[in-house]
Structures are given as C-alpha cells and as structure tokens.
Write a protein that binds this DNA or RNA. Structure first.
Lengths: 318, 318
DNA sequence: TCGCCTTATGGGTAAATGCTCATACATCGA
DNA sequence: TCGATGTATGAGCATTTACCCATAAGGCGA
C-alpha cells in the first residue's frame, strides 16, 4: 500500500499553520478557525513550525555596517568570499546568526549546474548551516566528508553533516569511514590503507569547494568537549602553541599544522593551506577569534562567514 | 573604512530590528534597549522590515509548494475555499491524493452545529472522498443528491454518494429518484412533475453547501465511460464546444451550460453558477483541467480541492 | 484488566504586540 | 515671518500571543 501521507501529519499541520501565520499574516485565531482547531493548538503548531525549522527567516538586505566589515576583511586577508551577519547581541548563540548566511553561501555552490565535489567538515556551525538550508535538488554534485565519522564510543554519526546535507540535496555522499582520531598512528594508517578509504580521501583532496568550521584550542575546545582529545592531550598541544583546528587538524597561531599530539592520529583529510579552490570557514564567537585569525593567515580558509562582533574582533587583532 | 561612521539608513535600522526580532527571537522591548530607541520605534522598524521584504520568510516543507498554489488559485479565481494536496507522482490515481483533503473539507461542514442542507454530485472523486471520511454523528444535517440515481440499466446505485455518506454521518438523506438522463425530454419532465421529486429538487436547490465532481468532455468522458451518453451524443456536444460537466450538466469552455444534447434530458438539479453558498469542486487529473477551468470561470464552483500537478496546470492555462 | 506514566488539550492570565491619536518637529511656500 | 502641510514620536489601549496549570486521553507494563 503506497500511501505516502494520507493523514496530515503533525509536520504538515505545523507547516501549514506556520505558513498561514508568517506568510499569510493571519492571527492564530484565524488559523484556528481555518484549520478547525483550538487557538492553543494553532499557537503550538506555529511555534513548532519555527522550532523545527520548517519556517526559515532570512535577511534580504545588507546592512551597511556589515558590508563595511566585509570589505575590510576582504582587504585585510585577501579573501574571496566574505559574509558578515549582523550580531544578535551578547549571550545569543552566534551560530544562530551565521547559519542563514552560511546556508545561502552553500546554496550558491549547489545551484551551479556543473558537477562539483563539495568537501565538508563538521561541528555545530556546519550543523546549523544545514538546518538553515532549503531542500534543493542537485544530484549532479558529490558531497564528501573531510573528517572521520567514527566517534570514540563507536557511534557513527555525531554532527554528521554530510548525511544531513545529502538528504536535502539528494546528491551522492561519501562519509569518511575512519575514526575521527585513532588511538595510535598505526591504527590510523591501517584505516587509511583500506581501498574504500583511499577513494574517499582522494575525492576529498580533489574537492572543488570546501566548507569547514573552525575550532578553538583554548580550554573550551570543541575537541575536548566532544571527547575527541583528553585534557592531557589538549595541554600538550596548547604548550606547543596550538591555536585552532579545522576538521580536527590542529594548527598554531600562524596557521601552521603541528606535528605532534593527536595530529599524528587524526583520520580523514587535512585542508591544505593556500590552495586556489574556495575554502569557506563558518565560524563566529569571541573565543574562536585567534583560531580564525590563524586559519586566515595561512589561507587554510580563503573565505569566511561570521558575525559582526567576531568580524570586528578579527580586524582589531590583525 | 569606505564609509567612516556613515549614519545607518532607515533601511539598515529596519533590517537590523527585523533581524533581531525574527532571527534573534528578541522581544521588541529588548530590541529597543539594544538599539537605544523607544519600543514603538522598534515596533515600527520591525513592521517596516517585514512590509518592505527585508525579511524573507519561506517554508521548508513539501507542502509549502501546495500552500503557494492555493494562494495563487484563490487570487486568480477569487475562490473561497481551496485545498491543494501534494501530488502522488505520475501514474498514481489523483483521487487517492485528493480524497483525504476532500474528506476533511466535507467534515468541516458536517461538524458545524447548525443544520445544513448538503447537496452532492457523484463520481469517482466524491466516492473517494466518502471512503476517506471518518464516521461522524451529525444527524442535524440533511444530505441531498443533485443527480438522478437511476442508471440506464435500471440499477439504483452507481456511485451513489449520498447513501454512503448518510451511513457515516447517520443523517437523513434524499436521493434524487429520477433517471440520470432520460431517453426523452418529455419523460424527464414527467419525472420532475411528480410531487416527491419536486420536494427533493426544492431541497437541492436550497442547499447550503454543494460538493461536486467535475467531468471532462473529451473522449475519455466519464459520462461516456459509464454509459450515460452515447458516442454520437458526445460527438454532438463536443462539436458544440462542450468542455466539462458537473452533476451531468454539460457546459462550454466558459462554463456556460449548453442547450442541446443530453442537457435537455438530464434529471436532477443543475448547479447554478455565481451563487454565494459554497460550491466545492473535487477534481484532479490532467484531462480534467479544461473542465475545471470552465467551471471556475463561471463560478459553477467557488471552491476547489485538487492536487499539485492539476493546480499548476490550471494556473498555467489561466 | 487495571493502574501508572507520559503526552496532549483547553482555560486562564500575564506579557507582548499593533493600532490610534494627539502632539511636536521640520520643511516649504507665500 | 508666518502658516500650512506632512511626517515622526510616544502615550494609551485593544488585540494578540505565550506560558502555566489542571485535566483528559492514550500507551504500556504488571
């Protein structure tokens, strides 16, 4: 029995209510009458539509101050693509601010007709970007992960961005079937000698465009919070000048990859600095400023999506 | 640097306020505090951002497209009630797609406490609607058929919708005890002179709400397939510009009833065009597009339940 | 089957929002 | 200079929305 959606699901109702509210400009009373439900239920549906990201809001105007910051960043770091989203005020999660802009930037590439290989890192920023994306049918592209998808506890999907994007664009996708960080260099190498892994690695290295988050290596490092490195390993790398990481690979304040600590056991593909293909960093937040700065200096990334306060901080420290 | 401390334009402020409101989820009070303005000004900026399209809202859900189509149909044809169900893909029976939506629409009326007279046509679409209906005890309403229930072979129930609905709502029901199409105008008139028939006709003409299918008059006409008209009669009416039919009454491409062919011998009640009471067409399918278009033009129906591809076709031909 | 636990529902209410209006300010023309 | 005209502002108020809570409904294990 193929009956895809015979009964209007909760999502359908929520989407409809949200549409009537935000697009149709109706009050919740009117929506309740229209759908034959109570006002409270209408309110819950509308709020659910927003919470689940069924309703997407974007700013269709470049605020002058942000444009100025973009131009300044472009000048100062020789960037190809820069987007600065308005800040949301202290205390707000900067991912909320940059997600729509990041999604728009990714969609730009996905809408190109010629087939592209898009390489992706992980992290909360990329996760937010994907959530803010619309569904877009682009089966001509290939999506490849830069970073292993096997977490320390063996679970397969952490912030598995590639899978989620692939859902939305219906494009072939290639997760990196290795541990994010292996216990020993030998085990890491063993994984990377496997032919299927070599294929994915080759694909990632040949990517036409790269989207990555940027992690700080201060005490609030995502690598530590997510259990990929121990406190001792973090200490060691901090002492050696670790400033940030991209796709799990740690670099110093000049953006030079370190040859120690977990860098000897990190799986997947390191984003090569200084290449011509677009390499877009998606990152915002005061604690990430030194890391972003370093990645920009060595051109691990040559494009940036960030928010207003982060942009200001980058310029004042540069 | 390009514009040292340029005064932020009104648009900039509006965009920023709208951003903080819709993306940041702040209250207008908080925005006012953040930007150092009065709450009223914040409110005006937010509302301006929306009015000028600085803030774009879109729905990231499959039914989003359907809602857009509904709005377009409502605009284009001045309809009161429109539902567009998501298409089920080529090859699938469109009745399957629209039946749940049609049932929901009918249930809306049946749930009303005040007694209604509901007039019904026949056809596969209405049959599907009834099958998709839940049982609902509404003895306050009366259900009346628009169309005769005597088939050419003398059998009484073909797609007899009224009986089946009545089963589900346990409401009094009034079949139209005349032939769908009589052999001669005289026989038809003889039936309609009978007092019981006149009562049913009067009831149908006073209906508070009408649900009908819409039949095409191309070579795959339901009237022909079900043996109500002969091939010769169909030819004659096609030559005269027949475009579709509602409850057995044939009309041209502008929705004007023809005065020839079987229209002179059709029993039951013709749905009068342009009345205020809801008259909901339940119809989908590529071959029905010209018929639906005609019925919409002359407002034989002022409401529509259809599916996505049909909705698109209606709009592109309109 | 019963009773417990989780989840959904609708009433009530405080907070937030949108609207109207009187007023202030500025611009422009006589 | 004065007045007229148009526009922006904030106060007050009606409407709308969000949240809390008591209760009902549904699911699940004993």
């Amino acid at each position: 029995m193929s009956r895809p959606d015979a009964e209007p699901s909760l999502h359908d109702d929520a989407a409809r209510a949200g549409w009537l509210y935000y697009v149709g400009g109706m009050t919740q009373d009117q929506i309740a009458a229209e759908l034959g439900i109570s006002r409270q239920r209408a309110q819950r549906l509308v709020s659910r539509a927003m919470a689940e990201g069924l309703i997407q809001v974007r700013l269709n105007h470049r605020i002058g101050a942000c444009l100025d910051l973009e131009a300044a960043l472009r000048d100062r770091f020789g960037l190809d693509r820069v987007r600065v989203a308005p800040g949301l005020g202290a205390g707000a999660d900067p991912v909320r601010a940059i997600a729509p802009a990041a999604a728009a930037e990714l969609e730009r590439f996905l809408r190109m007709p010629e087939p592209l290989v898009v390489a992706l890192g992980t992290g909360r920023a990329l996760r937010g970007m994907v959530d803010a994306m619309v569904e877009i049918d682009s089966p001509q592209h290939r999506l490849v992960s830069l970073i292993g998808n096997i977490a320390p506890d063996g679970s397969a999907s952490f912030f598995d961005v590639v899978m989620r994007i692939a859902d939305k664009v219906r494009a072939p996708h290639y997760p990196m079937p290795v541990p994010v960080i292996s216990p020993t260099p030998e085990e890491n190498e063993a994984f990377h000698r496997l032919p299927p892994v070599r294929k994915v690695v080759a694909l990632a290295e040949a990517a036409d465009v790269v989207f990555v988050g940027v992690g700080q290596m201060s005490n609030d490092a995502p690598l530590l919070a997510d259990g990929f490195v121990t406190r001792a390993e973090l200490d060691e790398m901090q002492t050696a000048g670790a400033s940030g990481e991209v796709a799990g690979w740690v670099f110093d304040s000049e953006g030079r990859y370190l040859d120690l600590g977990t860098n000897r056991r990190t799986g997947g593909v390191r984003v090569a600095p200084g290449l011509a293909r677009p390499s877009i960093g998606i990152a915002a937040g005061a604690s990430k400023v030194p890391a972003i700065l370093a990645a920009l200096k060595s051109r691990i990334i040559n494009g940036l999506v960030t928010d207003e306060p982060t942009a200001r901080a980058l310029l004042s420290r540069a």
